[in-house]
């Protein structure tokens, strides 16, 4: 159910993972695009929960990985979804050898060890789930483990971070204001062209010229947002296209797969994007 940073594991054997496993040991590649790093560092010092806003694939997760590495804190990531329950976050009793054993959920783990806890796409979780974080986000900084009758006090280094994508308009209203207003917000958008080019070069392993063209493609397709594309094309997709190209796929085909068909099913829009690709490559 949870997607815990690069580990696939079911809640049952979570106990097997030590908090050390959440440490990021090598520097994640991240290109800064503004003052987000210093802002986050301040928030970390002041222990203010942070909300990362921005469209999909624009580097929110990568940024946080980078910050966790920079601040040498473990990073516990929880991908939120509709069926996520409070127990999934806090923990539950398991049955083992005749006994019931308490197992901490990822949130409890992060709270205890002073990790950065990242609730990815927090709006996807139900409201009754998101309220469990409320006492953690004010000056109480506690996490009640109701089933055990315990109150966990947060480690001084614990920091809560949520991400959310304001693109989905109707969902936006679902993020309760009482939740939203506990967070300091950092805005993310698609990186400016220079930066995006550096990212596509590094991550997509393509030469400068190809990266430049991919970024140009990204900009042009983003211009079409009014035309029925729900979101602009993400940096992630440009990176994918780059990877395909570096793997030997012809640029036009790579872009068809990673951009045209990934972005839309509308025939006219597809035709337009195909023409733009043909123009760029």
């Amino acid at each position: 159910m949870q997607n815990i940073h690069s580990k696939t594991t079911s809640p049952k054997n979570l106990n097997g993972i030590a908090i050390e496993d959440y440490h990021i040991t090598t520097e994640p590649f991240y290109v800064s695009t503004g003052n987000e790093i210093s802002l986050f560092e301040s928030a970390y010092r002041l222990k203010m929960p942070v909300l990362l806003k921005g469209p999909t694939g624009c580097g929110k997760t990568r940024f946080l990985e980078h910050m966790a590495w920079k601040l040498s804190r473990p990073l516990v990531t929880i991908a939120c979804h509709e069926d996520l329950t409070a127990s999934d976050l806090v923990g539950r009793y398991l049955l083992r050898d005749n006994e019931t054993v308490w197992q901490d959920g990822p949130l409890s783990l992060a709270v205890k060890h002073g990790a950065i806890c990242y609730l990815d796409e927090a709006v996807e979780a139900r409201k009754d789930t998101t309220v469990v974080i409320h006492p953690l986000t004010d000056n109480r900084r506690i996490l009640p483990q109701e089933k055990r009758g315990l109150l966990l006090e947060a480690h001084p280094d614990f920091l809560l971070v949520m991400s959310y994508n304001p693109g989905y308009q109707s969902v936006m209203k679902d993020l309760k204001h009482s939740t939203r207003q506990r967070f300091l917000a950092i805005d993310f958008t698609y990186p400016p062209s220079k930066e995006e080019q550096a990212i596509v070069m590094e991550e997509g392993q393509v030469d400068e010229n190809t990266a430049e063209r991919l970024v140009k493609l990204g900009e042009m397709v983003r211009n079409l947002r009014q035309q029925g594309l729900e979101e602009g094309i993400s940096t992630r997709l440009l990176v994918y296209a780059g990877r395909l190209i570096s793997d030997g796929v012809l640029p036009k085909e790579a872009c068809q797969a990673a951009v045209t068909r990934a972005m839309t099913d509308d025939m006219e829009l597809q035709e337009a994007i195909t023409e733009i690709i043909a123009g760029i490559f």
Binding site: V221, N223, L224, Q226, E271, A272, I273, E275, I276
Partner: peptide, 15 residues
């Protein structure tokens, strides 16, 4: 027309 105007919009950055 629709396809063409989308291509132009992508290039110009406005409708």
């Amino acid at each position: 027309r629709n396809t063409l105007s989308m291509i132009c919009e992508a290039l110009l950055g406005q409708p």
